[in-house]
């Protein structure tokens, strides 16, 4: 589904250039659940930004299915991201002024999905995540786990082919983290390709494959044995 060839990324600070990704080559198949690990400053988030098409300043080749991302302009990349990619953030990043339902509706509105269809899709996801009762609450009325649940619901409401998650459980306690990870597993089982960045070995084991970055270099690429889980969501 995704193929990176010699992807490099650097930042200029004054006269010095700092490399955060060095000749990264990575293939991610459809339906994979990939975990990106590594110490702070290794380039994990930079890699995720490249995958999410949020960063334009990289070099190399990036193929998304049959599309040569490196040949697209900014607008075309934004269109591709809008159609095919969902994002889950460590700090949830729900919009404070919008209710749960409105937050979930946001990516659909940006995709210009017709209102009636949107209503149905939002209702479905609320039901699927069992948060119908909370649809009119504002983010500050939810716990951290609930907020991340909404964040994931928002990321998958438009059924993206690729779900990217940046430290999705970084701000949650262990029980909530477990529930979120099990939800990811369920989504993966239903066909969504997932790439998560995490420091947690335990969370990494929910995935099927681990890659590790150090100083921008890809240093490890390991397949894992499948872990049996039960889906749980509040």
């Amino acid at each position: 589904m995704i193929e990176l060839k010699n992807v490099e990324r650097s930042y200029k600070t004054g006269h010095t250039e700092t490399w955060v990704l060095r000749r990264v080559g990575l293939t991610i198949g459809e339906g994979e659940f990939l975990t990106v690990m590594g110490p702070s400053g290794a380039g994990k988030s930079s890699l995720l930004n490249v995958l999410a098409l949020l960063d334009d300043g990289w070099l190399g080749e990036y193929w998304f299915s049959e599309t040569a991302v490196h040949a697209l302009n900014r607008k075309q990349r934004a269109d591709l991201a809008r159609q095919r990619i969902g994002m889950v953030f460590q700090s949830y990043h729900l919009l404070d002024d919008l209710t749960v339902a409105e937050n979930i509706d946001l990516p659909l509105s940006y995709k210009n999905v017709p209102p009636k269809e949107r209503q149905g899709m939002v209702a479905d996801i609320l039901d699927r995540f069992q948060i119908v009762a909370k649809k009119d609450l504002y983010p500050n009325q939810l716990s951290g786990g609930q907020q991340q649940l909404v964040g994931i619901a928002r990321a998958v409401v438009h059924a993206p082919a690729l779900l990217l998650a940046d430290e999705p459980t970084g701000n949650l306690h262990s029980t909530q983290a477990r529930e979120i990870m099990e939800l990811f597993c369920e989504l993966n089982r239903q066909g969504t390709t997932i790439v998560q960045v995490t420091h947690s070995e335990e969370n990494a084991r929910y995935g099927k494959r681990i890659v590790e970055l150090r100083d921008g270099w890809l240093t490890r690429d390991e397949k894992l044995e499948p872990k049996t889980t039960e889906v749980g969501a509040k």
Partner: peptide, 16 residues
């Protein structure tokens, strides 16, 4: 500004 950044990350166009 961060909220605007999230909106962009979720697919909002600059025009929007």
């Amino acid at each position: 500004r961060q909220q605007a950044a999230v909106r962009v990350a979720l697919g909002a166009s600059r025009g929007r």
